[in-house]
Design a protein around this nucleic acid. Structure first.
Lengths: 239, 239
DNA sequence: ATTCAATAAAAAATCGATTTTTTTAACTCA
DNA sequence: TGAGTTAAAAAAATCGATTTTTTATTGAAT
């Protein structure tokens, strides 16, 4: 009845989500050509819905439209990653502050719930299964979203989401590297239970300074490792 | 050879620019239906390019796409305007600071040139002609753009441009009001030569505190009047 | 051997018709 | 009278073919 799959029944909507997923997940590699004819046969949509989906994706800068020369997957670059990480931190800080000021009971409950779920999920470690990593990742994202869910600022949230989605592309591309294992674990080790609990407590007690410190450190540390890992990624031939 | 008109030869590109202009200028009013068939005959493009243009516009939130129910011009709202003005100031401050740090000779020359052109154009006053207002408006926008042109931050600039474009819709809608005259002149009076010159000098001398004060006051004053004018606009029946 | 032009192939963009979905209107039955 | 149902009209979405533009190839001339 209220399945998510049913929300977008149109071919265009389906094509959009399929292509978006393929780009973010790296199934369609950065810089790859996006020929409507090819994608049409590959994904099983007509050329028209594909084209319309590509138009939307290029407006979000996930694809690149060159007039009379078709579409390509937007390329990845180290300087862009730096900027995106910076902007993301800025948006998330701002939205978190506003949530701390405007958010009510329901928002607080959402934060507590998201935190609880995150705690119940084992953080990734060298031997953890993909499904476990996946679940933890989802809950981690959900926790961060819960922190900023308390404020009504549609544009701020839109911009935040745009940076998050772009960064996700980089994350997946980087972690695909064969030797990414140790760096990945170094990364997720930073995102420890303690840090998240500190963040939750600071936010709920409306302690802006403490929340700011916690979030900034949290994101800046990961940003540092991220950017460094991308440099290595970009240096490899297959990258 | 290098005309701007020739850069987008495709029907889709033309349709996109035409529709975008019509929405921003208010020729297509907020909330109005955007039926591909109607627009097709009205603007002289096929339904396919129109549809693709609408897809792009809805990704930028100038249009609204509702699955199986077509497109509409995005509505205007007072709270949204407030948020957009806030974000715009934030982006412009940040980009200005970065330009002051990263910008070189060429950037400085651009600022001086844009300022000079603005000074040579008469600021709008009760009796000025539309063409004069238009020219001054263009030069005013160009001056502000020149202030942030010195830094390489594509995403920051993209976000800034998105807010500026959205705010432009509000500006035009508000100033269309029959009794907007006096408020408009009160508005443009704020944007005096003195303020702009102060801004230029602060920026060129790399005085961040002074530049910040000048820009913040400049934008916040206009934002205040803007928001107040929109409340009146929204209250009128025809609005 | 290299540049240029002409041609052929491929790909992108566009059109007009068809299909699907939503909206409107009329109608029946309680 | 009013709620629910069905049929007709309108509009959105999609398809497949056609047109236009770009890219690759070939051959001739310098």
């Amino acid at each position: 009845m209220t399945t998510t799959a049913e929300q977008s029944r149109s071919q265009t909507g389906e094509a959009y989500h399929a292509l978006r997923g393929a780009i973010v997940s790296g199934a369609l590699a950065a810089g790859a050509r996006l020929s409507p004819a090819d994608l049409s046969t590959k994904f099983g949509f007509g050329p028209t819905p594909i084209r319309e989906a590509l138009a939307r994706l290029s407006a979000e800068n996930l694809a690149l439209a060159i007039e009379q020369r078709g579409f390509r997957v937007a390329p990845l670059s180290g300087v862009e990653l730096r900027e995106l990480l910076d902007l993301r931190l800025g948006f998330e800080r701002e939205a978190m502050f506003r949530s701390m000021r405007e958010g009510g009971d329901v928002w607080e409950a959402g934060v507590v719930a998201a935190h609880h779920l995150l705690m119940l999920s084992a953080p990734p470690h060298p031997g953890s299964l993909p499904a476990e990593r996946e679940l933890w990742g989802q809950r981690h994202d959900a926790f961060h979203l819960s922190l900023i869910a308390g404020c009504a600022a549609p544009w701020l949230k839109r911009f935040h989401r745009m940076t998050v989605d772009q960064i996700e592309r980089y994350r997946i591309a980087i972690l695909r590297q064969p030797d990414a294992g140790d760096a990945r674990d170094r990364l997720t080790h930073l995102l420890s239970h303690a840090e998240h609990t500190a963040l939750r407590d600071a936010v709920l007690s409306r302690d802006e300074a403490r929340a700011d410190a916690a979030l900034s450190a949290h994101i800046r540390d990961t940003a540092e490792i991220f950017a460094a890992m991308f440099e290595r990624y970009a240096a490899t031939p297959g990258g």
